[in-house]
């Protein structure tokens, strides 16, 4: 009852809106984040281009994963986290009081560092997102479309009812990508998706990312600079919680403006 009243009250506060710059999917504005008392992100500002791949690079512990998890509010699951600032998605602030995390995560999918399929059958893994979001679709159709998009269909089409844990690591990770694609998000976040995989599986996923950007906005965290150079259109370089430099990948790798970036890219530290 009280909650209902509160919701009604909230609806009345008009949701913050802005006009998005052309071709931009997400804007991060003055974002600060604390884990308890330690500040992990310091005044981040970044503009993420639609239907492009943006890579986030930097030495480990610099806050890449933390920033990525801010983009679909996964940090809300950690009790000690406090966030200040704004993240705009299609003109809406996802940290607005009236926005629901569940809606955000439907629009912004995520693939984790370690493959984490559910211990269900392959098709139920894919269908899970539609089920929990009440998306009324043909199960077989969704499974086939997502697996094809994730370049896994040919390998598993005869064993859709097998447990997903029976797949190899690389297949599991592509299944996780397919699972994220099944609910047709706008943005896909990937946190070092290849770090647990062998080179062949890595190459497959890199090819996949290249294809995905036709339909999705992809943001990928990687500690592998060659990978960033290969797959991304834009690159953000972070250091100790700050965004040091952001620009087109070719510019960052060939002509970095900051000395810190240059040192990292030429491998002189980190």
């Amino acid at each position: 009852m009280i909650r209902k009243l509160k919701e009604l009250f909230k609806e009345e506060q008009s949701c913050q809106r802005i006009e998005m710059p052309i071709d931009k999917k997400m804007l991060v504005e003055d974002l600060d984040l604390w884990y308890g008392k330690t500040k992990a992100l310091k005044n981040i500002n970044i503009e993420l281009e639609e239907n492009k791949v943006t890579a986030i690079i930097g030495p480990s512990g610099c806050g890449k994963s933390t920033l990525l998890r801010c983009l679909n509010r996964m940090n809300d699951t950690i009790p000690s986290v406090r966030v200040e600032g704004k993240v705009w998605l299609d003109g809406y602030n996802i940290y607005d009081e009236v926005t629901d995390c569940v809606d955000i995560r439907r629009k912004v999918g995520m693939v984790f560092q370690k493959p984490n399929p559910f211990p269900f059958s392959i098709e139920n893994n894919i269908y899970y997102g539609c089920q929990v979001n009440g998306i009324d679709v043909d199960k077989g159709g969704v499974v086939e479309r997502s697996l094809k998009q994730a370049a896994l269909w040919d390998e598993v089409k005869d064993r859709l009812d097998e447990n997903a844990l029976s797949l190899s690591g690389g297949q599991q990770q592509r299944l996780c990508i397919a699972r994220a694609l099944a609910i047709e998000p706008d943005v896909i976040l990937m946190d070092e998706p290849c770090s647990a995989l062998d080179p062949i599986a890595t190459a497959k996923i890199e090819d996949l990312i290249d294809e995905l950007k036709e339909y999705y906005t992809v943001i990928i965290v990687t500690h592998n600079m060659q990978q960033a150079a290969r797959v991304s259109d834009y690159t953000a370089y972070m250091y100790l919680g700050e965004l040091i430099e952001f620009g087109e990948t070719t510019q960052i790798f060939e002509n970095p403006q900051e000395e810190n970036t240059e040192r990292y890219i030429t491998g002189r530290f980190g």
């Binding site: 984790f112 997102g129 609910i183």
Partner: peptide
Amino acid sequence: DLRDASLALGAT
């Protein structure tokens, strides 16, 4: 991991 995976798919 599994909880995160589920939440990231928009599950409550």
